[in-house]
């Protein structure tokens, strides 16, 4: 009985008093319009939408006019969110860089100590460093001298300065390769496509002297000659050194040099994502727990 009284009294309280006039909203409706007007409005809508679509399509086709071949997406086995770099491939890529690329390209931000326990033992890395001569000094007489490299040394620079590099390469500066992968659109895909993409220029395109045709390079002509050929070097693990294998390994190596924290970063991703998921579950439960009081209360009022 009390419940019925309470309910009815609440309904009475909620009911709008008649002295307040209901506001009529001016809804837009096509219901009462004539058929001709409906057809005209529909036609106008179709023309407008089609016009916008046409404009967008035309704009995109204009963008496709540049003479640049975009690299396809290759299934790198380190491109997944939790996939580490393939260490054997990085190691092979290091030897490709050392024996092929390093003749022209510097790698100014890599040190021999970075190789230790990345894909080499400490002794191997020391032996690698000792192969190069490093200018050190000054000694007691104020002279600079050369000594075998140590773990704390940078990778050697093939040219003394950028001007010397340009002079030796017909005016084209070979870029530093340490961070080349994130510095180019397409990343590893671009590097791989560029290294394997040398071909004869198509009919109608004349290539100037001292440059080479490569459709993946913006502009189509590149100062660098094709560097990788089948069996150009021999891998110490017996992998067949085909051109595409060399290009794949050196691309993986360049991804590693640009991101030596790559594996740690992805390991941190596992930890971060799982701890945040855990915290989210706890937070959701705690919110529900705290709101139970508010959500389950029942208000009654009496006159």
């Amino acid at each position: 009985m009390a419940a019925i009284v309470g309910r009815s009294s609440r309904q009475a309280l909620l009911r709008a008093r008649s002295s307040i006039s209901c506001q009529n909203a001016g809804f837009v409706t096509f219901k009462n319009q004539s058929t001709g007007r409906k057809i005209a409005l529909a036609a106008a809508g179709i023309v407008t939408t089609g016009g916008i679509g046409l404009a967008v399509a035309l704009n995109q086709s204009v963008l496709a006019g540049e003479l640049e071949l975009h690299p396809p997406k290759y299934p790198w086995n380190h491109s997944g969110y939790l996939d580490a770099l393939d260490v054997t491939s990085v190691r092979r890529g290091y030897f490709v860089y050392k024996q092929v690329c390093a003749a022209c390209h510097s790698m100014n931000y890599m040190y021999y100590r970075n190789l230790v326990d990345a894909f080499m033992t400490e002794d191997e890395a020391k032996a690698e460093a000792a192969e190069v001569q490093v200018v050190d000094g000054p000694d007691e007489e104020g002279k600079m001298f050369e000594r075998p490299g140590k773990l704390a040394d940078k990778f050697p620079n093939p040219y003394a300065n950028p001007e010397a590099a340009r002079a030796a390469n017909n005016g084209a500066l070979p870029p530093d390769l340490t961070f080349i992968v994130p510095a180019r659109h397409g990343g590893e895909d671009y590097i791989f496509s560029l290294l394997t993409g040398y071909c004869d220029p198509p009919a109608g395109i004349t290539v100037k002297e001292d440059v080479h045709y490569n459709p993946y390079f913006p502009g189509g002509t590149i100062g660098m000659a094709q560097a990788l050929y089948n069996e150009i070097i021999e891998y110490d693990d017996g992998t067949p050194a085909t051109q595409s294998q060399l290009a794949k390994d050196v691309s993986t190596f360049l991804r590693w040099t640009s991101e030596i924290e790559h594996d740690t970063r992805k390991k941190t991703a596992i930890k971060t994502l799982s701890i945040l998921t855990l915290l989210m579950v706890i937070t959701y439960y705690f919110k529900r727990h705290r709101w139970t009081v508010l959500k389950s209360r029942k208000l009654t009022s009496q006159k």
């Binding site: 086995n77 380190h78 939790l82 996939d83 580490a84 770099l85 393939d86 260490v87 054997t88 326990d117 990345a118 894909f119 594996d263 992805k266 390991k267 596992i270 930890k271 799982s274």
Partner: peptide
């Protein structure tokens, strides 16, 4: 989590 990462990437890591 280290075990999970090592398991996902078994055969690719330096220690392997």
């Amino acid at each position: 989590s280290n075990y999970a990462f090592d398991y996902i990437n078994r055969g690719k890591l330096y220690k392997d």
